[in-house]
Every structure is written in structure tokens, then in C-alpha cells.
Design a protein around this nucleic acid. Structure first.
Lengths: 241, 241
DNA sequence: CCGGCGGACTGAGGCAGATCAAGGTGCCGC
DNA sequence: GCGGCACCTTGATCTGCCTCAGTCCGCCGG
């Protein structure tokens, strides 16, 4: 499907019923008969690769739902050190960890389309559909579990264990229910992976090379990985000696 | 108030209305007129120092609300590496990051009293009081923010920055609204702090000594810290050079 | 076709924090 | 008062990852 100039603009109304992201997202909690309302609440927007559309510290007025593409969520220290707390793809809701201001920034790492809701409209949606609130709570708990897993990774795992955990997690990410894919597309750069895993770009690169040399993976291109020894990576990721 | 042997046992019924932890906890979302019901849902239990009362991997049947004392939440790797994801004190709810099984363990690091709810009873409470669900969502979002802050710490901060962040956070923890205390009680050991900050016990000890030598803190005892140069620690924690 | 550039890879050397090792200290039971 | 134990501190050495530096590759525009 070609991207038209209209699609690249603001406020394209398209029935949520046909949204490809809906089954993966918060919006699946909205019953069919309320979908027309949902469409009036959200605004579809497109963001170019590299664009920052949530900025840490800014007033948190909008929430987003990614419908295609991938974004990175990150925090910065004043001297420029960056920590990527996670990547978010299709169906992912942005704006849980929010007070009055955003506590993180979000940047598109490839072309992204997202639905934007204002805070008050989300509020209204929650009031009208209690299932939405319940769904948000479940989502928040899942994110909490993922965050604690990341804390374990950053606090106690070696570079190899970190990269193995990351690759396996990403291979499941595409569709959590399907059998995990052996071929993984990595839309982010080595630098992004490093900033996610608490490493440097060089260490990430060296660890990729090591896995490759040891026959654990193949890398047809730098943004594609084929897992060739999943059991080994799984043992590594689990921290088994 | 002396602790009677009855109090140390199971199932002491005391009106939640007088619970000292209530204002800090989930239970404040339950309106006064439903409090008698609340009391019938919860079971008060006491745990000795060192006791593990939630075990990672076990079926998640109960939720807890800490009413006094402090616990540590942690994850283990098969070879014994430990990562403490957080400490929880009075009013803290345990059981957000839960699927069918617990994804972390909980141990009392000092004598602890907690209210125990079964999963079904919490469900009932949520159905009867929608405010409880809303409160849980807010709590989950706060925890998510804290977890992301910890991810930043573990991924990108130096040992000194980690300890400074920890001490300042803990000095605010007592009462988030009150002006932060200069005198901080640390119920956990150096080893626990290390496992929380992704360091070793030796590095934590050395960093305490360094802060002491540099006049940033005083340590009347190993479990008490007096912050004597808060601005410096604050700069350090923020990552300012 | 060529120059520029962002991203990836690799080597050499350095360093923050880990590991190993040895006391020291406070506390409890007896 | 004293032995035992858990915890803390400090010193010496080691090492995994970081830093610095250089090269290569693919891609894009001209």
C-alpha cells in the first residue's frame, strides 16, 4: 500500500474496525458497537524515521498507540548518556508511565504511524468502557514484569547473556502466541541495542561477531539475524552456566 | 503498643478503620462504609526477619499489603546471582507484577506484618469498589516509572551515582510528601544494597567510605546514614558532571 | 563514478568495579 | 566475659567491558 500525502498528514478518519493493529492493542478492549466513537477520539499521525514525538519533561497531554513501525523509549542523563528502556511496535500503548510530564522520550527508529489521544479523551474512553481501564491495568502489569526482567539483565547479566536475552525476546516479540521465529529483523542500530542493554556499541558488535564465529547465529545483513543455535542462546539468556 | 502472642498469629480481626497503614495504602481507596467488608477479606499475618513468603515460580494465589516492616523483592538466576528489584515498606502492595505464577520472590528483611488477600477476594473487592481498580492502575504506573528510573541507574550510572541515587530516594521514601529527611534508616544490609544497585558488597562499602571521607555523609551506625552534603549527592544522582 | 557519511567491525590499551583475601566490629546466647 | 557468627571494611590483584583509534562497507547524491 502506497503512502499518500493525505495519509502522511493529520486526522485521517478510517474506521477502527479495519485497523490492522487493533487485535494487538488496547483498542481491542473497546466493543464493536463503540468503535465509531473510538474513531472520533483518535487522530492518526505519521512520523518520519528519527523524529522525536514525546519529549522527556514536556507536559503529558497526549497518549499514543503505535499502529505500524517501531519506536524507542529512552531516558537521558545531562551529559548525554542514554538508556533505552524499551522498543515498541505495532499495538503498543505509549503513555502509561506518565505523571503530569513525560518521564521518557520517544523516537521513531523507522517510519511510524500512531493514533494520538488526548488525556481527556482517554479519560472519557475509560469512563465509557470499563474494559479499557481493566485492559490498561493488565498492560501496565505486563510492562512491569518486563521492566523487572530488564532490571535483572542490567544488574546481573554478562554482555553475552544480555545479547542472547535480547535476541530471544525480540524473536518472540513479533507474535507472542506464534512459535518464535528463527529469522529476526532488528530495526534498530547497534548503538540502540547497546543503549538498551547497558553496553557500548563496540561490545555489542564484538558479541555479535562472537556468536557468529561460534555458530550461534547468522547475520545475512546487519539488521537481520538468523538464530542457528537457539538452545545455547536460551541457556545463556537464562544464566545457566 | 506491645505485640501480643495473638497478634503474632493468623487472622487477627481489627477494624481497618484504625489501621496505621491505611492512609498509605491501596485500602484508602475503599470508602469508609465498605471497611467492615474489607476486614473480612484480609488476613493479618506476621513474618519473621529472613522469612520468604512469596517465591518466584510458585502459583500466585495471594496478594499482600505490607502494614509494617520492610521486605525485599528479588529475582534469582540459576547460579545464585541475585537482583533486588526493590524494597517495600508500610502501605506497599505486593502482587502487581504477577501472572499465574509469581515472577519474583519476597523476603522480610525485618519483622513484617502484612494483610493477605486471595486473588478471588481481591477480584471481588475490585468489582465492588471501582476506585480500587483505578488506584491499582495508578500504583502500577508509579511502579513502572520507578522501574524505568532503576533501569537508567543500572544501565548508565557509575557506582557513586548509584549509591547517591539510592540514598536520596530512600530519604524521600519515608513520607513522600514531607520534606526529605537528612537522617535515614537503612534496614537492609550492604549486600542487599549491592544486589539492588547491580554492584558487589565491597564496592558499596568502599563507596560509603568514600562519601564519608569526602564529608558527604556521616554513618552513626551501619544502618543509619546522615546526609551532610545533599546538594552534592543530588548532582551526583542526576548524573551532572 | 566518486566523495561523503552513517553505521558496523576490530585491535590495543586502560580502568572501574569484580574477585580474592584478611581482618575488624557489633551483637547475641550462655 | 567470651565464643561464635553475621556483617562490614580495607587492601591487593584481576578482568570484562570501556575507550580510543583506525578501517571497511553500503548507500546516497551529484
Amino acid at each position: 500500500m502506497r503512502m499518500t500525502s493525505a495519509a502522511a498528514g493529520e486526522s485521517r478518519r478510517e474506521p477502527c474496525a479495519y485497523c490492522q493493529a487493533r487485535p494487538h492493542s488496547l483498542c481491542s478492549a473497546v466493543p464493536d458497537d463503540a468503535l465509531s466513537m473510538l474513531a472520533t477520539l483518535a487522530v492518526v499521525r505519521d512520523y518520519a524515521k528519527g523524529q522525536v514525538f514525546i519529549e522527556q519533561g514536556a507536559a503529558a497531554e497526549d497518549f499514543f498507540n503505535v499502529t505500524s513501525g517501531t519506536v524507542k523509549l529512552y531516558k537521558l542523563l545531562p551529559d548525554g548518556r542514554q538508556q533505552i528502556t524499551g522498543f515498541a511496535g505495532t499495538g503498543h500503548f505509549l503513555g502509561l508511565a506518565v505523571t503530569d510530564t513525560y518521564t521518557f522520550s520517544v523516537q521513531a527508529i523507522e517510519p511510524v504511524r500512531a493514533c494520538r489521544f488526548s488525556r481527556s479523551r482517554l479519560r472519557r474512553l475509560m469512563d465509557d468502557c470499563p474494559q479499557v481501564e481493566e485492559r490498561l491495568l493488565r498492560t501496565a502489569c505486563q510492562e512491569l514484569i518486563a521492566a523487572q526482567e530488564q532490571i535483572l539483565l542490567l544488574g546481573r547479566k554478562s554482555a553475552q547473556e544480555r545479547l542472547a536475552t535480547f535476541l530471544l525476546g525480540w524473536s518472540r516479540q513479533a507474535d507472542p502466541r506464534a512459535p518464535p521465529a528463527e529469522r529476526v529483523r532488528l530495526p534498530m542500530t547497534r548503538g540502540d541495542i547497546a543503549d538498551h542493554l547497558g553496553l557500548t556499541i563496540e561490545t555489542v558488535s564484538r558479541t555479535f561477531s562472537r556468536f557468529r564465529a561460534d555458530g550461534r547465529i547468522r547475520t545475512p545483513s546487519s539488521h537481520e539475524v538468523v538464530i542457528t543455535d537457539r538452545p545455547y542462546l536460551e541457556r545463556l539468556a537464562a544464566g545457566a552456566v
